[in-house]
């Protein structure tokens, strides 16, 4: 009787510990799972103004809303240790939702050797991010610069007419990061 109780208690312990370890491992995994979950949330909510640096999947024609004008501001930032000059060609544009527009960012390698960099986009207000469609953008790829090369980098974009009507100004910001594996 005593022995049977003991065995079942030992077995109960083992079962319980196994389950608890399973929870532990699952929660460790959940920590990592928060990465894709967060990305999805960012896409949906425009959290942090992420536009993901991704191209719009299908470029479907849209009705152009001539009656509405939205101001798009262009901003350039350099991350620390990114030895470029980097600036938008124009500081802002007046655009109609639904219509394509093109502009340029200018960048110049300030060093005497080749550099690799990547621009990371961010849109304010965050809720406008999902309505800001980049059709062509230098931010989709890493950019290789020859020594002291100066280059114009195009952005083709369109504002989705579904942009909430109370948004009148959208800021598109790029931060240029140097990639460490430059030249590699």
């Amino acid at each position: 009787m005593e022995i049977r109780e003991a065995v079942s208690a030992g077995a109960a312990n083992r079962r319980l510990v196994k389950r608890l370890l399973l929870i532990t491992v699952a929660m460790f995994g959940f920590g990592f799972a928060m990465v894709p979950i967060y990305d999805v949330l960012c896409q949906i909510t425009g959290l942090n103004g992420k536009t993901g640096g991704r191209q719009v999947a299908a470029v479907l024609p849209m009705a152009v809303d001539e009656a509405r004008t939205v101001t798009v501001e262009f901003v350039a930032n350099l991350n620390v240790g990114a030895p470029w000059e980097f600036a938008p060609q124009v500081s802002h544009m007046q655009v109609h939702p639904g219509q394509y527009y093109q502009t340029h960012y200018l960048a110049r390698n300030l060093t005497g050797h080749a550099l690799v960099g990547q621009a990371i986009p961010s849109v304010a207000p965050g809720l406008a991010a999902q309505h800001f469609q980049k059709i062509e953008c230098f931010c989709f790829n890493r950019q290789v610069f020859q020594p002291e090369e100066r280059r114009e980098m195009p952005v083709v974009f369109r504002i989705d007419p579904n942009l909430p009507s109370d948004v009148h100004t959208i800021t598109l910001s790029y931060t240029f990061f140097r990639l460490d594996d430059a030249g590699g």
Partner: peptide, 25 residues
């Protein structure tokens, strides 16, 4: 440009984190 900072002016009641790669409004 490097690490996270936060721009705070009490009299304006603005405190907003400055995050590399992202803009806050």
């Amino acid at each position: 440009s490097d690490v996270i900072h936060s721009w705070w002016v009490p009299a304006l009641a603005i405190k907003k984190d400055a995050i590399p790669g992202f803009i806050n409004e």
